[in-house]
């Protein structure tokens, strides 16, 4: 779930937009020519996978691939996520325009933590991949819950986290295979 417009007060959304746009600038600096199409296709991939729903116990979940994006792109993930969220907001109303900064910061934090995990776990790469995928979903969900509690929507908002645990597990399993596949087919992508 990305936060829609009208839920968070301007005291949060406006500073978050300023910080997110500064980070987008930072993430988009000194790009090499071969990075631009890769970032573009990955932003398109993030957008498309978020539309593919998997049935789960009467409801449905979708992949985010934020952990994988973090592993491959590092700080460059921030503009990718920003553009992905802009598309989701404009076309499918998943998330808002004013809350795009807040959503970018929460989603990017998961991706950057995934990158950190991937770099620091040198052995057992499938396990590292699983953790990247898992935390790529859980960290944004955790931050979103904390944000809602901070805004005084009540402590019940912590239950949001529970919805995301199955999605994070599926994402973790899938992310544990993809970097290994890329190591064989496109080794230049994986740090």
């Amino acid at each position: 779930m990305h936060i829609a417009d009208g839920i968070l007060p301007l005291e949060i959304t406006i500073p978050a937009n300023v910080i997110a746009i500064s980070l987008v600038y930072a993430g988009g600096r000194n790009l090499k020519s071969d990075e631009v199409p890769r970032m573009g296709i990955f932003a398109a991939a993030l957008f498309i996978v978020s539309l593919i729903q998997f049935p789960l116990g009467g409801t449905s979940i979708h992949l985010g691939l934020y952990g994988l994006a973090g592993i491959i792109f590092g700080l460059r993930t921030i503009p990718i996520i920003f553009v992905d969220l802009l598309f989701q907001s404009l076309i499918f109303q998943h998330g808002g325009l004013l809350t795009i900064g807040t959503n970018t910061l929460t989603m990017s934090s998961g991706a950057l933590i995934a990158r950190f995990i991937w770099i620091h776990i040198k052995r057992y790469k499938p396990l590292a991949g699983f953790l990247c995928g898992f935390f790529g979903i859980i960290i944004p969900a955790l931050l979103m819950s904390l944000l809602f509690i901070m805004v005084d929507y009540g402590k019940g908002m912590a239950f949001i986290l529970a919805i995301y645990i199955p999605a994070a597990l599926v994402e973790g399993f899938i992310t544990s295979f993809i970097p290994t596949y890329f190591k064989k087919t496109k080794p230049e992508l994986i740090p």
Binding site: V24, G28, V36, P37, M39, A43, A44, I48, P79
Partner: peptide
């Protein structure tokens, strides 16, 4: 808006169809 956002958006608009 940062040019990286508009450039990537233009590419995403093209690549969505490619990815599908």
């Amino acid at each position: 808006f940062p040019s990286i956002v508009t450039t990537l958006s233009k590419l995403v608009y093209t690549y969505i169809f490619l990815f599908i």
